[in-house]
Amino acid sequence: MPRKRSRKLKTYQTSLGFYDQAVAAPSMKAALEAWGARSNLFHQGIAKQTDDPDIVAATMAAPGVVLRRPVGSDGPFTEHAELPTDLADDEDKPRSRSRPKSKSKSKPKKRPARIATKSSRTDDDQDARRAAAAFAKEEQRRESARRKEEAARAKERARRDKAVAAAEAALDKARHEHQARTDEIEAERAALDERAEAEETRWDKQRMKLEDAVRRARE
């Protein structure tokens, strides 16, 4: 029997609330389920597939686990991320009536592009295969648990059906016995009625004969 090939995992990224979120999943649908999204974020342009090697490496190390980082930052994705620092600073600072002068923001330095060598691509492929294998193993575990639960439910149904069949058989047996006894009593009652009728007929004949004898004796 041919082995079922495991689906290759991909890394998907989105921004929800105060966090950027990323997850390694076999499909966009699986990623939306992991994020708990109620709408298609990909169609809305809020989510996308990413090939960033740092993000891919982080998600592939924990397939199916949603990783986060403060929104707008370029830090690493982790399972437990803190709130954005600018949000925390805004909460701590008192609000001023006068609006401070805006300062020109310096453009962030672009990170140098990483040159993918044959060795790094091989390592990435190995990591991707290991992550896909881990995801497939977790799916197999869930499937095995589901089959065990279904087998337990089937066993319970069989036990209940057997008990019901035994109770119905006992009821049918008792019903037949009751009917047999009722028929026997009815037969005995019919025989008694016949004997009683024969006795009445005999008595009528005897009574009439004796009454004639009494009448003749009085004459």
Rank of each mutant, 00 (worst) to 15 (best):
E82P: 14
E82R: 03
L83Y: 06
T85E: 15
D89M: 10
D90M: 12
D92M: 04
D92Y: 04
P94C: 03
R95V: 08
R95K: 15
R97L: 11
R97W: 11
S98K: 05
S98G: 06
R99I: 15
R99D: 13
R99T: 14
P100Q: 02
K101N: 09
S102G: 13
S102L: 06
S102A: 14
S102M: 09
K103H: 05
K103D: 11
S104I: 15
S104Y: 06
K105L: 10
S106F: 05
K107H: 04
P108D: 04
P108S: 13
K109A: 07
R111F: 00
R114K: 12
I115V: 14
I115R: 03
I115D: 04
A116V: 15
T117K: 01
T117D: 06
K118L: 09
S119I: 10
S119E: 15
S120V: 14
S120E: 13
S120I: 13
R121L: 07
R121C: 02
R121G: 01
D123R: 08
D123Q: 08
D125V: 06
D125P: 00
D127I: 12
A128R: 14
R129N: 08
A131K: 02
A131F: 00
A132Y: 03
A132S: 15
A132D: 07
A133K: 07
A134D: 09
A134P: 00
A134Y: 03
K137P: 01
R142W: 00
E143A: 11
A145F: 01
R146I: 08
R147L: 06
E150F: 06
R153V: 05
R153E: 13
E156Q: 07
E156G: 03
E156A: 13
A158D: 10
R160I: 09
K162L: 03
K162M: 08
K162C: 04
A163H: 09
A165F: 07
A165L: 07
A166Y: 04
A167P: 01
A167T: 02
L171A: 15
K173W: 02
K173H: 00
R175Q: 09
R175T: 15
R175M: 13
H176R: 15
E177V: 08
Q179A: 10
R181L: 12
R181W: 05
D183K: 14
E184M: 03
I185R: 14
I185T: 06
A187E: 14
A187F: 00
E188R: 08
R189K: 14
A191F: 02
L192M: 08
L192C: 09
L192V: 13
L192G: 00
D193H: 08
D193L: 11
E194D: 09
E194F: 06
A196P: 00
A196W: 02
E197K: 10
E197A: 12
A198G: 04
T201V: 14
R202E: 15
W203R: 01
D204L: 11
R207M: 08
M208R: 00
